[in-house]
Nucleic acid binder design. Structure first.
Lengths: 340, 340
DNA sequence: CTGAAAGCGCTTACAG
DNA sequence: CTGAAAGCGCTTACAG
């Protein structure tokens, strides 16, 4: 941003053509005599001229921009989803602006206000109030406003008609996890969960009960252990709770890899062997799984595919996308679960 | 983006004022009679009107946007730096667009081309060719072009006059690490390093030799172990190399937390106790340190402060910032280093 | 194939 | 305090 930046007019003057011709060369939308093209290209190169995306956006009424707002950009789940979205968006010629709300409602408000001004062609929302089991009407209203200015897609359950939702198949992930453990011979299975207010947790909890019943496994309420957040420390505290138990589970699922890592450490430091005494299974299959000792088996998703689907749905607006789609899950066996 | 979005003209007409008045209310730059303000605000609320940032940017010749390009957005070091920058930028009223180059030169080129069109008020560059010990002239030229359109700041050593560089104090980090280990009684110290072509590695290597000499500790070339990349697997392979050693170090520094985590696991699985037989110290102090067993001691930085400094330097352009600044380092003791 | 002109949606001197 | 008008830097009918 110098005093006044060089424009298409400057290029045109120096090349001895009209600004329209320069524009045609830049956009490549119309034929231009080769000789003129040459001259113009030379002048462009001489000044390292690059057309102003803002002016272009204003005339074309599009800006090749995608907004993405996540709850915590430095959390490895969200950063994996973002990285996947960004690369797909970039491949399609879009640039991504990432904003972080730290899961704070006041930030969600101000971030979405800013997004409306920025008018990205599409907005991808992941985490925060959008994940609430019982929708927050204030937030729903905010989404309605945002929709007037930009197409929105959520990495969650669809919050309303017209906003496609694409999310992890929470029920399938729990089903797979429990069946995997049952296949290893476990009958006494626990679940350390976080975020009861979120639909993903609700779905996993329901599925847990259901699949345990289907498999004819005993469901013990004391094996359902709530923790406050998604941290290592929360997992460690859950391990303490498990130690107190008269009769212990032989396997436990942790809400995500961080909680599971804490669980694993906590159990170990209580002298409980993993997987010797208790098997631990994580969710998300982030790189954390390679770092724990023993390495953590985990139910994961194809982040690359998830990101691609999110961006595709965001960008190809004419298609008739399903209101809700779920990402398939798979399990990666490492060393934290044993046959009993 | 409907057919035609609602504009300041629509608002003006319905409120019975001129567009200029609406604009004045929106920007808050000039006094407007209270009664008119009321009327206008009502119409704005009625339509959830939000001014178009692109049009505004074009007239004001600024866009309140910061670009950030990182080598790997899903790497925890970069995502910590980004999160810190984003929050500081947001606090100052800027939105951040994050782009990821995957450290590929061809992506650096296309990303920077796109950045020039987008004309963010400032660009923060972290990782990739900017970190090369011997500058790449092609890349330097690319930076020169970019500078014509936007102020650039790097999270690295300053590549040229006019581009402020702010980076981790690599020498200090190594000095601190070695002195810490020496303080624990270690004399036989090793270093597993990655990216010899990067200045940060070069600095750490030099400092390693220097501080070892200062402390009168024996420097054994076979304790300087190069690995290919910054992964857990690289650390594991380094552990194998250490096992082969006739005479083993009693402590080793790993290039970053990931490498150190792999080192730790590899050593453990070779039957070498950590920290009983060998102490391991990491760099970066990311959340990885809480997940390893034993938990990893690590030399880290204040990411929040780093991000704030990067953004401040990027945005307050009138100030006379030093060409090169280094972020202070500190050590966080956990359980991977023992007194000998 | 090419230029003059209008328009995208704002802001800001300029003149009351 | 307020409006008419010009301008920001492009693109695209429109008319040759």
């Amino acid at each position: 941003m110098e005093k006044r930046s060089i424009t298409i007019y400057d290029i045109a003057r120096e090349a001895g053509v009209s600004p329209a011709t320069v524009s045609r060369i830049l956009t490549g939308t119309a034929a231009v005599r080769e000789e003129k093209r040459q001259r113009v290209m030379e002048v462009i190169a001489k000044y390292d001229f690059t057309p102003n995306a803002y002016a272009r956006a204003l005339t074309e009424n599009r800006n090749r921009t995608i907004g993405m707002v996540v709850a915590h950009s430095d959390n490895s789940y969200y950063s994996s989803v973002f990285a996947a979205c960004e690369s797909e968006a970039y491949r399609r010629g879009y640039v991504t602006m990432l904003m972080d709300t730290s899961s704070r409602p006041e930030n969600e408000v101000s971030v979405l206000n800013r997004i409306r001004e920025l008018r990205p062609e599409a907005l991808i929302l992941c985490g925060g109030r959008i994940d609430l089991e019982i929708p927050d009407p204030k937030f729903t209203e905010l989404l309605e406003m945002t929709r007037k200015y930009t197409r929105v897609v959520v990495g969650s359950r669809s919050p309303m008609a017209g906003i496609p939702g694409i999310s992890v198949d929470h029920r399938a992930s729990m089903n797979l996890g429990v069946r995997y453990l049952a296949g290893l011979g476990h009958r006494e299975i626990g679940f350390v969960y976080t975020g009861r207010q979120f639909y993903g947790t609700a779905e996993r909890l329901e599925e847990f009960r259901q699949v345990m019943a289907e498999l004819n496994l005993p469901l013990r309420e004391e094996y359902l252990i709530p923790v406050e957040d998604y941290t290592v420390q929360a997992g460690t505290r859950a391990a303490l709770a498990i130690r107190q138990l008269e009769r212990k589970p032989t396997a436990v699922l942790g809400m995500n890899d961080m909680v599971s890592a804490g669980l694993l450490q906590g159990l170990l430091s209580e002298g409980i062997r993993v997987p010797g005494d208790i098997s631990v299974l994580g969710f998300d299959d982030t790189f954390v799984t390679d770092i724990t000792t023993p390495r953590l088996s985990s139910v994961g998703y194809d982040y690359q595919a998830y990101g691609a689907m999110l961006v595709e749905t965001a960008v190809e607006r004419d298609q008739d996308w399903p209101a809700d789609r779920r990402i398939p899950v798979f399990i990666t066996e490492r060393d934290s679960c044993a046959r009993i």
